[in-house]
């Protein structure tokens, strides 16, 4: 019985230390050292939160750059319920053949490719792979540089502005590899689209 009481007392001490003191200490440090990051890297426009640097949003209007497909439900880029598609590599719903009515299976890669082509019939090139595959989180804020370049002509046409102008905005929204070697160079879609909106004002 002495063992049980020792175990209970150690559990209480450790719970206070690791379950209360530790998270509060880290919160205090984080809030004072990195206030913006600690609170979600939120973007505020005219006093209203327009999103977070870190969390992607759904775009399907031709005049915006599109983010990667998102598998969250009940709507794409639902930040309250992150999720990947978890489709296996041989699952017909992943790549997608035709369904009973001759249309590509909804939400599949084929479906996405035909939507991209429909939005920009003039474009004949193949679709960058990341732009047609769902991210792991369903909230990926980024696309590859190739995926951004694929969309420049469409966005410029839809907005009636010069492609070079859009190109320079893409460059500004691009993050290179971190410290030169880590990760992939990527374009933040939300920041890019917000800068497009600024332009048209």
């Amino acid at each position: 019985m002495k063992e049980l009481s020792t175990a209970l007392r150690l559990f209480v001490v450790m719970s206070i230390l690791t379950g209360i003191v530790y998270p509060l200490l880290v919160t205090g440090l984080a809030q004072s050292l990195f206030n913006r990051q600690a609170n979600g890297s939120l973007i505020t426009i005219h006093g209203q939160v327009a999103g977070s640097d870190l969390v992607g949003q759904q775009f399907d209007d031709p005049s915006y750059f599109w983010s990667r497909p998102s598998a969250t439900s009940p709507f794409a880029y639902n930040a309250a319920a992150s999720s990947g598609s978890n489709l296996g590599p041989t699952n017909p719903s992943l790549v997608g053949g035709k369904d009973g009515e001759g249309q590509p299976i909804s939400g599949s890669i084929a479906d996405r490719v035909s939507a991209l082509k429909a939005a920009d019939p003039a474009h004949s090139g193949s679709v960058p792979t990341d732009l047609a595959t769902a991210s792991g989180s369903g909230l990926d804020p980024h696309i590859s540089i190739a995926a951004a370049e694929y969309q420049i002509a469409r966005v410029a046409k839809a907005r009636g502005i010069d492609e070079a102008q859009v190109q320079s905005l893409v460059q500004r929204a691009t993050t290179p590899r971190q410290i030169g070697i880590l990760g992939e160079p990527v374009v933040n879609v939300l920041l890019l689209n917000l800068s497009l909106n600024q332009l048209s004002k």
Partner: peptide
């Protein structure tokens, strides 16, 4: 299916 590469980006973050 018309993608530029076979690299498996499904379920991975850019």
């Amino acid at each position: 299916a018309g993608l530029s590469s076979t690299a498996n980006w499904e379920g991975k973050e850019a």
